[in-house]
């Protein structure tokens, strides 16, 4: 009887793994196949000369170009907000906070990490309404609000990876510089932070991936189906994930559907490789501490 149960576990585990990876294979192959099939330069630039489009000389109306640029701008500005704040908070939690504060604040950031992104979008939207009342006609849903909300959404990734990287440094390394007369901050800045670079970088890469794929936050804070290139941070914009969502429900022509697949393909390749990269960094980090 026990033998049977043990054998069943083996069979069950392998079957589950096979099933899960089959599903992933279906998703990946389907998107790659349809996406590559549809993919072409004109799909991105919509008939406009790529050079003209890149230099902003001529607007692209029916191509993916504005959505790609929108997503890039969004991700860059979200990370510019989240990385310094997140790293600073991570350092504070790992190296300055008293144990009680550390527990309280970590719990708070766990809540933030678990909050549905739509809730953060809702908060961003509400703040936009307040701002709109304060400065009528000037501030509405826009790239800036989306970037700030997204930065807030990915903040816990940066905080946690920084904190974890610092806390998992070996005690001998931690004591080396103080024994040589380093002040607290000198130790952090010259020894501990450089030793945690790959861990922190891993967290930032995850944050980039998360910011690039999130749809719910931008849905409420300023993304639209057609806006062209944003001329400033205070304008509405297009983005890849929203474009994919929009096409899935609103497409009218096969060309639009093809663009949807091409966009899904781009986003999948971007996010998939970012997460694998972060994983590689994590492995590198683990190996460095095991074999030294």
């Amino acid at each position: 009887m026990i033998r049977f149960a043990e054998r069943f576990v083996v069979f069950f585990s392998l079957a589950c793994t096979a099933l899960l990876f089959f599903c992933i294979a279906v998703v990946t192959v389907y998107v790659l196949w349809r996406g590559l099939d549809a993919f072409s330069i004109s799909l991105i630039f919509g008939g406009v000369d790529p050079l003209d489009a890149l230099l902003g000389r001529r607007p692209v109306f029916d191509g993916l170009f504005p959505a790609i640029v929108g997503t890039l701008l969004l991700v860059v500005s979200a990370i510019v907000v989240a990385a310094p704040v997140g790293i600073a908070t991570g350092i504070y939690l790992a190296d300055y906070a008293s144990p009680r504060w550390r527990v309280t604040l970590s719990a708070l950031f766990d809540v933030l990490a678990g909050l549905p992104s739509i809730v953060i979008g809702l908060a961003g939207f509400t703040i936009t309404i307040y701002l709109h009342r304060l400065f009528p006609g000037r501030i509405g849903p826009c790239l800036l609000i989306s970037a700030l909300s997204l930065g807030f959404l990915v903040l816990p990734y940066v905080i946690r990876s920084t904190q974890l990287a610092l806390e998992s440094l070996p005690a001998t390394l931690r004591l080396t510089a103080p024994a040589l007369g380093a002040r607290h901050w000198q130790n952090i800045y010259r020894v501990l932070l450089p030793a945690s670079t790959s861990g922190i970088l891993g967290g930032i890469i995850l944050a980039i991936g998360r910011a690039a794929e999130d749809t719910a936050v931008i849905l409420l804070t300023g993304v639209v189906a057609s806006a062209g290139l944003p001329r400033s941070l205070l304008e509405q914009y297009e983005a890849l994930p929203f474009f994919i969502y929009y096409i899935s429900s609103q497409y009218t022509t096969t060309q639009e559907l093809e663009m949807g697949f091409a966009a899904a393909f781009l986003l999948l390749v971007l996010c998939g490789s970012l997460f694998l990269l972060a994983y590689g960094l994590e492995r590198l980090l683990a190996r460095r501490f095991v074999f030294r």
């Binding site: 004591l175 080396t176 510089a177 103080p178 450089p194 030793a195």
Partner: peptide, 29 residues
């Protein structure tokens, strides 16, 4: 504490060179 530790040196049980060159390690303090 940093002032004190510059005048009282310490060496540990396990050698703890920092992840940098020999020269930089010695120059570090």
């Amino acid at each position: 504490a940093s002032e004190l530790r510059r005048r009282v040196g310490m060496v540990f049980q396990k050698p703890n060179p920092l992840p940098m060159s020999i020269h930089k390690n010695v120059a570090f303090p």
